[in-house]
Computed example of a mutant assay.
Amino acid sequence: MSTSTRIVAATAAAVAFATASAQAVDRIPDAQQTRNVVLVHGAFADGSGWRGVYDRLTSRGYKVTIVQNPLTSLEDDVAATKRALDRQDGPAVLVGHSWGGTVITEAGVHPQVRSLVYVSALAPDAGETTAQQYDGFTTPPEFVLGIGEDGFAFIKPEAFSAGFAADASAADAAFMRDSQVPIAMSSFATTLTNAAWRTKPSWAVIATDDKAFDQKMLHSMAEKIGARVTEVAASHAVFMTQPNVVADVIDEAARGADQATR
């Protein structure tokens, strides 16, 4: 073996050791009770955007379930989330992005839910509609919807990148644009029965370059629910473009929920 080959091999071994050590440090303790995570996507997207978060959490030892919301009504999305929660073998962190925040607010009273994470997400109260969260705030001009005669809405293709995924690669933004899932706009007028954040500890990730929501609106909702806030420079697609930050906050919510129950 030549000297250069030995150096390359030694370097590769060192990198592998460092990577393995980092993964070992990151893995959740055996004594930790909250080891399950349920991820709920929002409007105009599906569960595939959670892949980066999924990979990071499963590498730490979490069991992760991704809900595929039909986006046909609040009731249907809550039912899909509850089916996922029913499958958990222990306490779970329930995570919602955007519209998914409304879903976890309603579904999060499920007994398996230990804590909540709102990722640039809506957070109504019981007795409120999602639409009421927008009162007094201005949606950025980059976020433009097209609503069909059937009442389902898409983000207009020419506005998708700027309004939803400005920090994603051109290829990823194009794929998300062309695979977006429409939402029934009537969902935003449905009154919530439950507000899980009133009884469950909450965390919030706020994307500072989000063009789907007024920044003041995001901070107002986070303050209302008493969330521990983490800000990150990202677009509305923060759940996909900043998986390290989002996974770290979910991990914090799992560990924090355990400590709160001791």
Rank of each mutant, 00 (worst) to 15 (best):
D248F: 08
A247N: 08
A9N: 01
A159N: 10
S98K: 06
T199E: 15
A174P: 00
F213N: 05
D86H: 02
T102M: 12
M217R: 03
Y54E: 10
G100V: 05
R114G: 12
T11G: 14
D248T: 07
S98H: 07
H41N: 00
V103R: 01
A12P: 00
G90A: 12
T139F: 04
G52D: 03
T138M: 10
S179T: 14
G96V: 00
Q132R: 13
M176S: 13
R177Q: 14
K63F: 02
A16V: 14
Q242T: 07
K82Y: 12
Q32V: 03
V119A: 12
L192I: 00
V113W: 09
D251Y: 02
V8S: 14
R60A: 15
D210W: 02
A16T: 14
L116H: 01
T34W: 08
F137R: 13
V15F: 02
G101P: 01
G96R: 04
P201R: 11
G151A: 06
F239C: 03
R83Q: 11
P141I: 10
A227D: 06
L192R: 13
W203V: 11
R6P: 06
L57C: 07
D135W: 09
A212T: 13
K82P: 00
Q180L: 12
W50F: 14
P91G: 14
M176R: 09
D248V: 08
L71V: 05
K63G: 14
L71S: 05
Y118M: 06
V144P: 05
G163E: 10
A254V: 08
H236E: 05
G151P: 01
A196C: 07
G151F: 00
D76P: 01
A207N: 03
M185F: 08
A257M: 06
L74S: 00
L145C: 11
D26P: 01
A14H: 07
V67R: 00
T208Y: 07
G101F: 03
T138W: 00
M240W: 15
K211E: 10
V15N: 01
T129F: 03
F213D: 02
L74A: 09
A173M: 13
K200F: 03
V67D: 04
P157H: 06
